[in-house]
Design a protein around this nucleic acid. Structure first.
Lengths: 193, 193
DNA sequence: GTCTATAATATGATAGAC
DNA sequence: GTCTATCATATTATAGAC
């Protein structure tokens, strides 16, 4: 992709995160990238295509991160959950601008694009569910409702997107440490950390 | 307010929750209420005024619920947190349509209206923070970072808005029970429930 | 590849008949 | 109070000059 094409993607990311897809105009995006409205369509098919590119890339990056985190973690559900939640939470905090679009602009995607992205979200959820089930089978996690536990674990990470700010009270690493500790408590692992 | 005025509010709530403020047109709202676009302005000043009315009412209802829940709860931080989180989570689940607007459409409010709503959000946060501090002072909550704990507790409730569905796997009460148990674990209370 | 200009449509809100 | 009609503007996207 050309330099201008990339700048347009960045401008779209900033604008979509701040004002939402429907609250952003193609003029906003063009202006943010330092070009005139007509130039947008040399680099991108449509405004929705820009959204899809941001959303898909964000989903793929998150999923790739979690898969490789699990691959590198020791063969222990406790350490795996700690690592998974730390990296997941850190990603949402560091990339909170992109993550906001990933998590809150799904409804603006075309039906076909939404399908593709929902499949990636299903994969991510399956990853967490499998880990919770393994910890439960190993007798180290103690949860009444594994399905609801999975939703709440993911909630802790996704909602970071909503409240995290670069100039707020915590760094991405502090948030990640707090969330991964909270996760271990949530699955009934004694708070030794 | 007239019957039509109320129907317009309900139609706006449904539309804003489904498509966002900027993704909703005044024609959508009028059609949803069974009237023509011109009739909207007999009952409401503007589209943004509809949003503000929904948002303010939702914020006030949540805050009132939490205040009265704390008033009625026994003088024990553990039971107070259990009750507070149960009622908060249940409200977000039962009223997930309104709650979606409350939690995710802040940026579409006018600056003056946003100020008013942010003040209510601050009050709600202070309520939770005070409770966590009291539990900590009493030696029954064990948390390293009370501020971050408060954010995560509120996260568990707010994010319900995003994922809860009436025809999903859990009732509002099941979710509320799971969230309040998760909250107690999160603050380091032994999982006896 | 970017610009200016503009087409085609959609939008928030209002006017005036009934 | 609701309707039809419409104003004024904004919007996505394209056309054609440079």
């Amino acid at each position: 992709m050309s330099e201008t094409g990339r700048r347009l993607l960045e401008a779209a990311t900033a604008a979509f995160a701040a004002k939402g897809f429907h609250g952003t105009t193609t003029r906003d995006i063009a202006t943010g990238a330092g070009v005139t409205p007509g130039a947008v369509y040399v680099h991108h098919r449509s405004k929705e295509e820009l959204l899809f590119q941001i959303s898909r890339h964000g989903h793929e990056a998150t999923l790739d991160l979690l898969v490789s985190t699990l691959e590198q973690a020791p063969d222990d559900p406790v350490e795996q959950l700690r690592a998974l939640m730390f990296e997941f939470a850190r990603w949402e905090a560091v990339h909170h601008t992109t993550a906001r679009i990933v998590n809150y602009e799904l409804q603006a995607l075309s039906p076909e694009h939404l399908d593709e992205v929902v499949a990636l979200r299903r994969d991510l959820r399956a990853l967490v569910r499998d880990l919770v089930e393994r910890g439960r089978a190993a007798g180290v996690f103690h949860v009444d409702d594994p399905g609801l536990t999975v939703v709440l674990l993911i909630s802790l990470c996704i909602d970071i997107t909503r409240w995290f700010s670069d100039d707020g009270g915590w760094s991405a690493e502090e948030v990640a440490a707090g969330v991964s500790q909270a996760a271990l408590r949530l699955v009934g692992v004694a708070p030794q950390s």
